[in-house]
């Protein structure tokens, strides 16, 4: 194949993976922005979405509807899961404990979801079935292009939601100053719950993209994906919505290109198996140079 075309293909693949990372990273960054908590269970929300798809896709097909419409069920399930996790675990701990207790609770929640899913659904992967049947366009698969377009649309919608709607303004107000937001009439706890719902819904869309590519789900599918998305959120500047998008896309592209080229570039010394290591090395370097992340700033933090 023409080397230039191959490069473009790898780049597009990177954008596809990056879109998934970005959507998941948004969930991390929105929750962090509003309650300063790294929601370690967020990656597992993708798994919740994935299993919802695995169970509802056959129902959709049986009912004669397009399989991808199952994403509606995944979005609803994930949003409810997010709200429940916040209301049952994080919120009570936050009111009584310190930030460390909240963090430990988040890790516990992640383990609970993963192991709970394993008890319920077993450790074997489960097939999801075909979500989309799209023609290839040139050398690009239809699913890949759809993922990128869908990712872009969701991110634009989110930006509009956060910046232009009343609810979005309320979220930004709560993220900056809960007392002042309350005085303006913003219901803080409700706003936090909505943030969880929106972040989790994004994870559901990410699970659709993931399943469209790999066609199967496992109970641990969210852990590595979640970890890389978390890296993306930190890389872009945690708490900053455009930062998560940028970080996600960047990590996806770097990962895809390093998988394709690192072996040849280093004469086989570093193989493509190191692509994850490269992703994390980039994180370390960026944080050394700019601790707040690419788009993050310390100026907003009040003293």
């Amino acid at each position: 194949m023409n080397p230039f075309l191959l490069f473009i293909q790898q780049l597009v693949n990177g954008l596809r993976v990056g879109s998934i990372y970005a959507l998941v990273a948004l969930g991390y960054t929105m929750v962090y922005g509003i309650i300063r908590l790294i929601n370690f269970a967020h990656g597992d929300f993708i798994m919740v979405g994935g299993y919802t798809l695995a169970f509802t896709v056959p129902l959709m097909v049986a009912a004669g509807m397009p399989a991808w419409l199952a994403v509606v069920a995944a979005i609803i399930t994930c949003a409810i899961t997010g709200i429940l996790v916040e209301k049952l675990a994080y919120s009570p701990v936050r009111r009584r404990g310190n930030r460390m207790s909240s963090l430990i609770t988040a890790i516990a929640m992640s383990l609970l979801l993963e192991n709970g899913a394993q008890v319920l659904f077993g450790a074997n992967p489960r097939g999801v079935g075909t979500l989309f049947t799209l023609p290839n366009i040139g050398v690009f698969s239809g699913t890949t292009l759809l993922t990128i377009v869908l990712g872009a649309l969701v991110m634009i919608a989110l930006q509009l939601f956060v910046n232009k709607t009343k609810m979005g303004r309320g979220m930004r107000a709560v993220s900056e100053d809960k007392e002042a937001a309350t005085l303006m009439g913003v219901h803080v706890n409700r706003t936090i719950a909505i943030t969880f719902a929106v972040g989790s819904a994004l994870a559901a869309v990410a699970s659709l993209m993931y399943c469209a590519q790999y066609n199967q789900v496992t109970t641990t599918m969210g852990s590595m994906l979640g970890l890389k998305a978390f890296v993306a959120a930190v890389l872009g500047g945690i708490g900053v919505v455009p930062g998560a998008m940028l970080g996600g896309i960047l990590i996806g592209v770097v990962e895809s290109l390093s998988k394709a080229y690192i072996g040849t570039l280093t004469g086989g010394v570093i193989t493509s198996a190191f692509s994850d290591a490269i992703v994390f090395a980039i994180l370390i370097v960026v944080l050394l140079v700019k601790p707040a992340g690419i788009l993050g700033s310390n100026a907003g933090e009040k003293v």
């Binding site: 303004r169 930004r172 107000a173 900056e176 007392e179 937001a181 303006m184 913003v186 009040k302």
Partner: peptide, 19 residues
């Protein structure tokens, strides 16, 4: 004061009329 520092002046005023 507790103004929203990461919002513009106009957005702060809009926040005042949130309800």
């Amino acid at each position: 004061r507790h103004v929203f520092t990461r919002m513009t002046v106009e957005e702060n005023l809009r926040m005042g009329a949130f309800i």
